[in-house]
Design a protein around this nucleic acid. Structure first.
Lengths: 191, 191
DNA sequence: GTCTATATAAAGATAGAC
DNA sequence: GTCTATCTTTATATAGAC
């Protein structure tokens, strides 16, 4: 891997840090870890991000932007297909035994700054909002028949997907767990 | 708070560390933090637990023992009531904006030792086993009417409860989130 | 923009006095 | 069993050369 430079390095730092946080938590990575993986020295990281907190804020922001972009790109189709695509996205972004980045951050809640906290809160709120709208649409289309309040179902779906990554990782069975949970969730929404 | 000593201190270290991990993650606490909260010095912690990893192993073990004890103490009654008690337990042990300890550990997966990993895996497996048995019992009693496989439902329930703590904490609404999810889950099991 | 060198502080851990 | 003192390593962060 060629040593990245300039604007290139900045985005590679963000990518690498995202994975490190997903694997080890916010307190479990250091500038030295990031630098090591990119074959540069710690001061190069500091050049782009003055403090660790600045870096974490940027990582959450980049993750949220990317994730929401992928959600927007989910093609039109049946409500069932769209929810399954959403779950798949979830599994993909968190692939390889990782969690959703915001779940990782939420786990270390008291170890992160205020800006990060409010950004993570917003991420979860946005996901619930998207899910609620999809559930409403599916119900209007006659595809979903659950009589339970869409906002409640949205919270359940998000919680179950986040939790499945967590439980699945610790069961050496993450990819399967998220698929099993997703399938069950759409069946529940349908009837 | 009087300074605890001897066998007393050992268990207070475990209790304090449990909370610290729930709040800040495995990598987010130090012997100094634990010592500070108990008004002793770091070497006193080392006297009881040679390494940080030894301490984490003991914390997971104590948490699991205590949690499983509380589960066993859930009184006989309707399947609905027992599942709701289980969810409540979950919320209580993780109260005050914390997660289930094993969820916190799972979040920092690559930062913990092998012994800890396998203990956490076992915790999640045991919980799924208990839930599956309860769901089967509820179905036999005619109380639960879901036709979906009990093992699948058990995974869903555990994932949703773990995830609700995570999402709820980041929504400044944890106590409510877990209750909402628990209520929805029993309704789904019933029909 | 990246490096070497360095400051400062904290962490995990141990030795040995009390 | 707990302390003081200390060792060693690592982390965050900055200054200044290249």
């Amino acid at each position: 891997m060629a040593r990245p430079t300039g604007r290139q390095l900045r985005s590679e730092i963000v990518e690498t840090t995202t994975v490190l946080i997903q694997e080890r938590g916010v307190s479990g990575f250091s500038f030295g870890d990031v630098a090591g993986q990119l074959a540069v020295k710690p001061p190069s990281i500091h050049h782009h991000f003055r403090t660790k907190d600045d870096l974490v804020v940027e990582v959450v922001s980049a993750y949220t932007r990317r994730f929401n972009g992928l959600v927007e790109d989910i093609p039109d189709g049946s409500a069932r297909a769209r929810i399954l695509s959403y779950a798949d996205l979830f599994a993909r972004v968190a692939s390889s035994d990782r969690l959703c980045l915001c779940a990782s951050v939420s786990s270390d809640w008291l170890a992160v700054g205020e800006r990060t906290k409010s950004d993570v809160q917003q991420f979860f709120a946005e996901q619930q909002g998207w899910l609620e709208a999809e559930i409403c649409a599916g119900t209007s289309a006659g595809e979903f028949g659950s009589e339970r309040p869409p906002a409640e179902l949205a919270l359940l779906v998000l919680s179950a997907l986040e939790g499945a990554l967590l439980v699945g990782r610790a069961s050496a069975d993450q990819a399967t767990a998220i698929k099993r949970v997703a399938r069950l969730l759409v069946e529940i929404l349908e009837k």
